[in-house]
């Protein structure tokens, strides 16, 4: 049983949007929508500023409210990978999952269903990395099994400060950011 996740290095990320473009191409994301996106945060007081650039997406949470609120069982957690996915054909487009996600990671695909990052499950099944992780020119996006002891994700998280987004939401996000 794996628990797929990402560890994203904010020091390496330059905000080039390659991850966004590769996701767009790989998953035929409708024009005007994004499954992953860039956030820039500048904090501090002059002259001591701190800048952080990060690539964000669905956090494939351990405790996913989007799955719990779905009245039709269209949103689900894939067994064996922990990836949060949507059965498009079961979705009514009631938008409860969009309201429930504290990261606003979902949107309504114009084809009529709730859409979001899938960790490129179709690629991962073939032993490939998600499109964004493959394309990232600075290797800021690291994908793997968070439950595998000694994995490269564990090594990265062991050596650096790590944060997750909105942990107070109680969702147990599986995308981590190296500081």
């Amino acid at each position: 049983m794996a628990r797929y996740g990402m560890v994203i290095d904010t020091h390496r990320c330059v905000g080039c949007h390659s991850c966004v473009i590769s996701c767009f191409m790989e998953n035929s994301v409708p024009e005007g929508y994004k499954r992953d996106w860039i956030v820039e945060v500048v904090s501090g007081e002059f002259p001591n500023f701190r800048s952080e650039i990060r690539s964000e997406r669905c956090n494939h949470c351990d405790n996913p409210p989007c799955v719990f609120v779905c009245p039709c069982g269209a949103s689900y957690v894939e067994e064996g990978t922990g990836t949060v996915l949507v059965h498009n054909e079961k979705c009514t487009g009631c938008k409860a999952c969009i309201a429930a996600c504290p990261y606003d990671a979902r949107f309504i695909n114009p084809a009529g269903f709730a859409d979001k990052c899938t960790f490129c499950d179709h690629r991962v099944k073939d032993g490939l990395l998600p499109g964004c992780a493959t394309t990232c020119p600075t290797k800021a996006i690291n994908f793997g099994d968070l439950d595998q002891p000694g994995s490269h994700l564990h090594k990265l998280m062991h050596d650096r400060s790590v944060k997750s987004l909105k942990p107070s939401a109680g969702t147990g996000p599986n995308v981590y950011y190296l500081l």
């Binding site: 005007g32 904090s43 501090g44 949107f107």
Partner: peptide, 15 residues
């Protein structure tokens, strides 16, 4: 000071 720029602009989601 904290300034956040989010480049996501999904219809019906953002701002």
């Amino acid at each position: 000071m904290i300034e956040v720029t989010n480049y996501r602009d999904n219809p019906l989601i953002d701002p």
